[in-house]
C-alpha cells in the first residue's frame, strides 16, 4: 500500500481534512459545553426589529410601481445629462446640439409611448 504512488497524496488529503475540521469540531464542542443554546419562541421569530411579523411574505406588488420607477429613472438620468448641456450651450457647435436634440427627442418619444400605453395613469 505504501508503495502506491498516490499514498503520500492520500496522507496529505487526510491531514488537510483534519486541519480544517479539527478547529470546527473544537468550536462546536466549546459551544455545546460552555455556551449551550437557549432558544425560545420569540427568539426564533423572523423579525429582528422588535415588532411581530404580520401576514405572509409571499405578497404581490403591482407592476405599475416598476414601470413608474423605470420611467422616473430614465428622466432622472436625462436631467443629469441636460445640466452640462445647458451649461455648455453657448459654446456648442451644431453637431453637438443636434445629437443632444436627438437624445432628448428619443426620450420624449418614449414618454409619449408610455403615455399612449396608459402607464402614466394610476389605477
Amino acid at each position: 500500500m505504501a508503495s502506491n504512488p498516490y499514498f503520500s497524496l492520500a496522507v496529505l488529503f487526510v491531514v488537510a481534512l483534519g486541519f480544517g475540521l479539527t478547529p470546527l469540531g473544537l468550536a462546536w464542542l466549546w459551544r455545546v459545553v460552555y455556551s449551550p443554546a437557549k432558544p425560545n419562541g420569540i427568539k426564533n421569530a423572523i423579525y429582528e426589529c422588535g415588532l411581530e411579523s404580520k401576514g405572509d411574505a409571499w405578497v404581490q406588488f403591482r407592476s405599475a410601481y416598476y414601470l413608474y420607477a423605470i420611467i422616473f429613472l430614465i428622466f432622472d438620468v436625462e436631467a443629469v445629462f441636460l445640466l452640462p448641456f445647458a451649461v455648455a450651450f453657448m459654446g456648442l457647435d451644431t453637431a453637438a446640439c443636434v445629437s443632444m436634440l436627438v437624445f432628448v427627442l428619443l426620450l420624449v418619444e418614449g414618454l409619449a409611448w408610455a403615455w399612449a400605453k396608459g402607464v402614466l395613469v394610476w389605477v
Binding site: 455556551s35 437557549k38 420569540i42 427568539k43 421569530a45 411581530e52
Partner: peptide, 13 residues
C-alpha cells in the same frame, strides 16, 4: 415597552 422586551428576548445568551 413590548418592543424592548421582545428585542431582549431575541438577544443571544
Amino acid at each position: 415597552a413590548p418592543q424592548v422586551v421582545r428585542l431582549y428576548n431575541q438577544m443571544a445568551e
